[in-house]
Design a protein around this nucleic acid. Structure first.
Length: 304
DNA sequence: AAGGGCCTCAACCGCTATAGA
DNA sequence: CTCTATAGCGGTTGAGGCCCT
């Protein structure tokens, strides 16, 4: 399909807007409202293309735009949401009243990105940057050789965070059954499809946690085709988990948890086939999910 | 004072998504 | 279904201001 230009090239002004142009645009929009951007410049007496007018209005002239410095609270929100959503500036902007996606994007690139680097965190993944300068997890607390078993990892997480992390949330992450999720689902009248999938996979009472590459059994809630690491992507992108990030004061813990679980999804080739590893799985990875969750406190110290 | 480099951020570019004819 | 107009998005650019030497 041939793209039609958004405006005729001749006589179209580019570059910075003058106060006179701003006034013309504001006056026109106050009178006629938004829309009809293609024909607006001619009607408003502007030698600009419609797209330029729309952007000028959306990013600068709109009366509900908040100008001035970002507050520490706004900084915090942006950092948290960026960790969750990545460079989805428009999505991030919906959580900051009066801030435009363009403004947030600029602010990120000029300020917050540097701040993360100063804290030795990767500006894309937000994970700590290790000694090699590569983003990654601090392996000193995570034993790589056992990284393949999701349950092992959950055990570790439970052990490490049982005292700190709200147990409802941790339980929810594991079982897809938190109060937050339940309330949210009831209130909205719908459950995000990815969440539904996860809840179906994870919340059945008889679920036995299996590692994604452990093929000896097919009786668990996780099918052999179900990659735990793939589910994590869904899990951490879904609406309810997003809400946890933005509304619950557990961001750091959630981030670290995410890192640990993601790490667990990336198994080393061959490890899962070793007798030692399979023995370990038989012993500890087939435990009942409910028992596991209900005994979190007693697990403290087991793996750390 | 001059000028070169760096930084900021408004504006632009190119693309996709969506609605409607 | 196709085509077109429009809206929206994220990446990039470049003018202007600031800072340092």
């Amino acid at each position: 399909m041939v793209r039609t230009p958004c405006c005729k090239e001749e006589g179209i002004k580019k570059g910075a807007w003058t106060p006179e142009e701003d006034q013309k645009l504001i006056a026109y929009l106050q009178l006629h409202g938004e829309g009809g951007w293609r024909t607006l410049p001619e009607k408003a007496g502007l030698k600009r293309c419609g797209k330029s007018c729309r952007l000028r209005w959306a990013n600068y002239l709109r009366p509900d735009i908040k100008r001035g410095e970002f507050t520490p609270e706004e900084d915090d929100t942006i950092i948290k949401l960026h960790a969750l959503k990545g460079n989805k500036w428009a999505a991030i902007a919906t959580s900051l009243a009066g801030r435009t996606d363009n403004e947030i994007k600029n602010y990120w690139n000029t300020n917050l990105k540097k701040r993360l680097k100063q804290k030795a965190r990767d500006s894309t993944t937000h994970k700590p940057i290790n000694s090699t300068g590569q983003p990654g997890l601090e392996l000193k607390t995570h034993k790589p050789v056992y990284a393949s078993g999701p349950t092992r990892l959950l055990n570790r997480v439970a052990s490490k965070y049982a005292l700190d992390l709200n147990r409802d949330i941790l339980t929810g992450i594991i079982s897809g059954n938190t109060t937050i999720m339940a309330e949210d689902s009831q209130n909205s009248g719908e459950v995000d499809s990815s969440t539904s999938t996860l809840v179906n996979k994870m919340s059945a009472n008889s679920v036995m946690i299996k590692p994604s590459h452990y093929t000896a059994s097919t009786s668990s809630g996780f099918s052999d085709n179900c990659s735990f690491s793939d589910d994590l992507t869904e899990l951490f992108n879904n609406k309810e988990i997003s809400n946890m990030y933005s509304t619950v004061d557990n961001f750091e813990l959630m981030e670290e948890l995410k890192g640990i679980l993601s790490y667990g999804g990336a198994s080393d080739v061959g490890i899962e086939d070793s007798p030692e590893f399979l023995d370990f799985l038989n012993e500890e990875d087939n435990m009942d999910l409910e028992k596991f969750v209900s005994s979190l406190d007693s697990k403290v110290g087991v793996f750390f």
